[in-house]
Amino acid sequence: MHIQTAAVQTLRHHEHGAVVPPVHLASTFELDPGSEDGSYAYQRGANPTRAQLETVLATLDGADHGFAFASGMAATAAALSTLEVGDEVILPASVYGGTYRFVDLVLPGRGVTGRFVDDLGALTDADFTPATRAIFMETPANPTLRITDLRRLTELAHRHGAIVIVDNTFMTPVLQRPLELGADVVVQSATKYLAGHSDLLAGAITTNDESLAEAFALAQKAQGGVLSPGDSFRLIQGIKTLPLRLERQQANAVAIVDHLRGHDDIAQVWYPGSHSEDEARIHAGQATGTGAVLSFELVPELDRVAFLRALRYPGYAVSLGGVESLICRPATMTHEAMTPQAREKAGISDELLRLSVGIEDITDLLSDLDQALAEAG
């Protein structure tokens, strides 16, 4: 199936001929007194509605196993919790602030070391030690939009017995399928594009590795950070329009990039592939689009606060991927957990703005940006 068909048709043949899946709200399920067997026992361990969502998640990623969590960070934490005392994970310096916080503040207490590097794509065999057990990457990176060669890094990591975890939130399976490129685990903040309406928290993990799948199922049952049946249903419904929404969002983002690149009031625009011809080539070889997130800086003469206050349509808020456009300042919002030194190392300046482009009419978005730039002067 093409992904638009899979998004809509993965779940079929519901009870009574219903064209949408039922919502099973039960927290507990009756068992056979003789054998104490049953497909479901307690909602934390498994739930029919969540199971249907997990089937959809796995299908979209071309995975054997899918897992739904209560938030993107719950999914990321579960993926990183497979590491043990003495292990090391290598991450890009520009990783999402929530992931940075977990690796910097939580993992050390578990005896796990996180090593942040300036350019993940520049890793060589010499960068691996016997302790290196995982590589965690975002490509494109948040919010710099830097690109990492998934195939090369996966081959490199596997040579040293390390797994590769990819946060695919920005691309979604519509534009990039890391498992097909060799990655071991894909995590997503399903809050973003998969849900698409800024009205629920959810996280997703997919994998083809049986032992990792067992670990993620245990994380759900033992740690309890699972997605509720109601939100599982709403996420199933949101995913049905994912390809259509993303198509419009990406088209809008391309138009905004072209517009801002030629604007005298814009100092720099970043988008996937913008950093170098090599990164553009790599991205084109592993993804089928540039997505709908871009970052930019105003020229020093402009008043950033005046610009943000003058915007009529993009809301000044964290998060991304919803039908509405949102703009934020990563240094003080999404990446505030990082020290100023860490942000500088990651290439996240105090003036960098990240724009998540929605499905609004492009002429309205462009004229709004122009009037806000004029107000900022």
Rank of each mutant, 00 (worst) to 15 (best):
D64Y: 05
G238T: 00
F307H: 06
I266Q: 12
V89D: 11
H16D: 12
T191F: 04
G262M: 05
Q268W: 03
H14I: 07
R281F: 11
G72M: 07
Q249K: 06
A46F: 14
P22Y: 04
R12H: 10
D125E: 10
V56T: 12
Q43F: 15
V187P: 02
R44F: 08
R281D: 15
D278A: 13
F216Y: 10
Q371Y: 15
P173L: 10
M1H: 03
T124D: 12
L11A: 00
A213S: 07
E324R: 13
L201K: 15
A287W: 12
G230V: 11
V20Y: 09
A195P: 00
L123F: 00
D264I: 00
V305H: 03
R152P: 05
I282V: 13
A372F: 01
V187W: 02
G38S: 15
T241E: 14
A310K: 03
V85D: 04
I348M: 10
I165W: 00
I362G: 02
T206F: 09
T363W: 03
N168P: 13
V357D: 06
T172G: 11
T49N: 09
I147M: 06
L57H: 02
D364T: 12
L201W: 14
A280N: 09
R177V: 02
S228M: 05
R354D: 00
D278Q: 13
A134Y: 03
S295V: 09
M171H: 05
R115E: 14
V95G: 10
R343I: 09
R245V: 10
F69D: 07
S367H: 11
S356P: 10
A46E: 05
A6C: 05
M338V: 07
T207A: 05
A63G: 04
V166M: 07
A253L: 06
R146N: 15
P22C: 13
E15Y: 07
L200Q: 13
E15D: 03
V95K: 02
A317Q: 11
T76E: 02
T82F: 00
L194Q: 13
E180A: 14
T113A: 08
V269L: 01
A255Y: 01
V357H: 04
E277V: 08
V323Q: 11
Q249M: 05
K192W: 05
I163H: 01
P229V: 02
H160A: 07
I239D: 08
